[in-house]
Amino acid sequence: MDDNNVIFECRGLTKKYGSFEALSDVNLKLEKGRIVGLLGPNGSGKSTLIKLANGLLSPTRGEVLVSGMEIGTETKRIVSYLPEKTYLNNWMKVREIIDYFEDFYTDFSRERAHELLQRLNINPEDKLKTMSKGTKEKVQLILVMSRNASLYLLDEPIGGVDPAARDYIINTIITNYNPESTVVISTHLITDVEQILDEVVFIEKGKIIMQKSVDEIRQTEGKSVDALFREVFRC
């Protein structure tokens, strides 16, 4: 792996909550221009890893670097994060939250946001608090994908959404990201995302147990990622 091409790196990353170790000595390198699936059962440490990359948690040991830099203002500028929960100010209208994103992120594209909103029939004048959970999640995804970031971290982007919306979201992700950027999709719904992934990272109980390109898996293992997942994480 070419070190100049590494957009995301963890070195000996450990996160403990009291005596519980959510992440144990994680060593990971992700290259630019890849769509990576961060796959693992619930509670395996996927969200923890992503939150550490965003500076929402502090490591117990080790470090996490984005574009070679420690997590801080400069990394936040180039990382676009979609959390599992809704994090938008409920009292705002969609238009106002777009203004907000545009204000703080120089890589935000208002045109793209409006186009996506229109396609999903979401009225910018609507207040977030009047929307259903599914619609709010779509708004969040639109905001995140309307940024021209170097690293997208999507935590369960299709979890709470109906199958039709899922397809739309996945489509949005591939058609709207910059080929130079890396998209990390953390999920346990593999069949839906499998076709767009370049690479997968399997994580279990806070440890990375596999990192392979999807082509390699199909060639050497001869099975789909979903089948491999079921095999690896068999209960």
Binding site: N54, G55, L56, K76, R77, L88
Partner: peptide, 12 residues
Amino acid sequence: DEGYLSFTLPVK
């Protein structure tokens, strides 16, 4: 919850 937005802004 809003902290997820606040602390991911490129702001000190």
